[in-house]
Design a binder for these strands. Structure first.
Length: 222
DNA sequence: TTTTGATCATTT
DNA sequence: AAATGATCAAAA
């Protein structure tokens, strides 16, 4: 079960095989101990699903399914099927941005082909009882691509102009920039107001929930 | 320290 | 309630 899937259909078969199971059941089968809550193990669900589907383990800067070029994203949803959280995409480069295009960006590379795996994850449901939903493969359509590109270009330009400190999660229609760090004291290099290097909080690109909500709606309406 | 995996918790 | 900001753990 943990060898990488060779084809997209084989990957889909594995996804279908775990749909409907609870996290507790799957964890038991794989020898994982289910935590009481995710307070200190926020990435636990993602790690569990990666192992179950045969994603290349580790924190390597590569797609989860290297040979297929597919990125796995678990997506916590409510009883109504709506996303409960924004979706982290990638760390935002804050320096050496000259000449970088959307098509070359980490955002595009990650989102070009995604396996969405919804998890019924209301906070009042114990982790062990949360149910795995029907995962599906997705690629951005023309409109989604355009929205992502527009936001990425706007945010990246502001970063390049040294306005990183003026940015917050409000910017962007579907893609936003927010802290992505161990804590609020973490620092990394960035471009300052006068074009000089400054130290600032590391940021990441996140998909807003209304964007992922549409992805789910488009898929399950069919 | 950075990249992987994200959710928690406070503010609006 | 939704949005924004803060935070946790493992691996390299």
């Amino acid at each position: 079960m943990n060898a990488p899937p060779q084809t997209l259909s084989q990957l889909q078969q594995r996804v279908d095989a775990i749909a409907g199971k609870t996290l507790g059941q799957l964890a038991g089968e794989l020898g994982f101990k289910t935590p009481q809550d995710l307070l200190r193990e926020k990435g636990w669900v993602g790690q569990l699903i990666e192992l179950a589907l045969g994603a290349s383990a580790g924190s390597l800067p590569e797609p989860d399914f290297v040979s297929l070029g597919v990125e796995l994203k678990t997506l916590p949803i409510s009883q109504k099927g709506l996303p409960l959280e924004t979706t982290f995409v990638s760390v935002a480069p804050l320096t050496n941005l000259q000449g970088l295009t959307f098509e070359q960006s980490t955002v595009y590379k990650k989102l070009n082909h995604v396996l969405w795996l919804p998890i019924l994850a209301e906070r009042d449901i114990a982790v062990i009882d949360r149910v795995i939903g029907s995962g599906f493969l997705w690629r951005p359509n023309e409109q989604q691509f355009a929205q992502l590109k527009r936001d990425w270009e706007e945010l990246t330009e502001l970063i390049a102009l040294g306005k990183i400190e003026t940015l917050n999660g409000h910017y962007g229609e579907v893609l936003q920039l927010r802290p992505k760090a161990a804590n609020s004291q973490a620092l990394t290099d960035a471009i300052g107001p006068q074009g000089k290097t400054i130290q600032t909080l590391p940021r990441g690109f996140y998909l807003k929930t209304h964007f992922t909500r549409q992805i789910l709606a488009n898929h399950f309406a069919l």
